[in-house]
Simulated scan of single mutants.
Amino acid sequence: MNNWFLFFASIMLIGASTVLMKLLEPETFPSLFDSFWWVMTTVTTVGYGDFYPVSVAGRIYAIFLYFFGIGLIGVVIGKLVESLSFFRLLKEEGKMQYLGVNHIVMIGWSGKVQHAIAELLDSDNRIEIVLIASLEKTPVNTERVHYIKGEPADEEVLQKANVKKCRSIIIFVDETIKEPKLADAKSLMAATAISKYAGDLHITVEVLEEKHIELFRHVSVDEFVVSDETISHLAVQAALSAGASKLFSQMLSRSVGDDVCQIPIRPEWKTYRDAFNYLAEQGATLIGDKESLNIASKLDESLPEKGELFVICNDACYEQLVKYKHRS
């Protein structure tokens, strides 16, 4: 039978039985709620025994409910359980649309993506992530990660991920493609499709080779992460300066030591020196702005009225610094 018909028939049966039992035995069921309570405990087979019919007519109708009401409600409950199981299956297979906002969209799946998701979830217990990949089932079993199956160049997939209302997007290299040019070309296609569909969004793209960044000149990409060069630089630094790789890893990871954090510029800070001194008193080290890390050479230069600064600090210090932003 049609599910809606079953649901409507159940409502009608419960409503009609409530009124009928009140009419048949007004003394046994002083109010409609008492009658409704007895009907529900009967058709769900709970049977508390606090109310029960005593007349012949009432008992005959109760027998009718035993045969038809319990069966009908049992079918409806089974349909509800089946629907919930089906809903969970659709979510696991990446076929459910994400309706949240201010989330982060990650494209692709690899070990790097897995670590990135763990870092994001650890950094903010309110943040939600939408993962777009071509896997049969979700690789991450947590309520804060919503999986969408498909290709990011497909507009329907972007719509399911609610890309237009996300906070930012990270496009990772497809590691199944061994040719760097082809892998970066796929990332370019994804960035192009996102820019065309969603307009101005903060997009970060991982590329294998720095020379391929020029290919993205017509796409609104905010930041690039050069995968191969970054790993090579870390390896060289580790070889030349013992412990350098550990230092960089600690700065990049939110699970160990202090972290690199972004904070807003306050109006009372007129120069970089003002910000540097204040932050030092709070236990944070100013290392740069969005333009450069060469803060020491421009301490006496004026700060822009609005913008962001990068500092190294622990979680407790960061919470104190961003309280200003929330108050503003």
Rank of each mutant, 00 (worst) to 15 (best):
M1E: 06
N3M: 00
F7R: 11
F7D: 13
F8S: 09
G15K: 01
S17A: 14
T18S: 01
V19W: 08
L23F: 12
L23E: 15
L23H: 13
L24W: 09
L24Y: 09
E25D: 02
P26R: 13
T28W: 04
F29L: 01
W37F: 09
W38E: 01
V39D: 01
T42K: 14
T44W: 10
T45Q: 13
G47K: 14
Y48F: 12
D50E: 07
Y52D: 07
P53N: 02
V54Q: 15
V54C: 00
R59N: 11
R59E: 08
Y61W: 11
A62Y: 15
Y66H: 12
F67A: 10
I73D: 05
G74S: 14
V75H: 11
K79A: 04
L80P: 01
F86S: 15
F87D: 13
R88S: 15
L89D: 15
L90P: 05
E92G: 10
E93T: 11
M96Y: 07
G100Y: 09
V101Q: 13
M106V: 10
I107R: 04
W109T: 06
S110Q: 04
G111A: 10
K112A: 11
V113N: 02
L120S: 11
I127A: 08
V130G: 04
L131V: 07
I132H: 05
L135F: 02
K137R: 15
T138H: 02
R144N: 11
G150Y: 03
G150D: 05
A153G: 12
D154F: 08
A161V: 01
K165P: 00
S168C: 13
D174S: 11
E175H: 10
P180W: 07
P180I: 09
A185W: 06
M189G: 11
A193P: 04
I194A: 07
Y197P: 08
A198Q: 04
D200C: 00
L201S: 08
T204L: 04
L208G: 03
L208N: 05
E209N: 06
H212E: 13
I213V: 13
R217Q: 12
R217S: 13
V219R: 06
V219T: 09
E223D: 11
V226D: 01
S227A: 11
Q237Y: 13
Q237K: 14
A238S: 15
A239D: 15
A242K: 15
G243I: 08
M251I: 02
D259A: 11
Q262P: 03
Q262L: 12
I265F: 06
P267L: 00
W269P: 02
Y272A: 02
Y272M: 00
D274R: 01
A275N: 04
L279Q: 03
L279H: 00
A280K: 08
E281L: 12
A284S: 03
T285E: 06
L286V: 02
E291D: 07
S292P: 05
L293D: 08
N294E: 15
I295D: 05
I295T: 00
A296V: 14
A296I: 13
D300L: 05
S302C: 04
L303C: 07
L309D: 05
L309G: 01
F310G: 02
C313A: 14
C313S: 08
N314D: 14
Y324D: 09
Y324R: 03
K325Y: 01
S328Q: 10
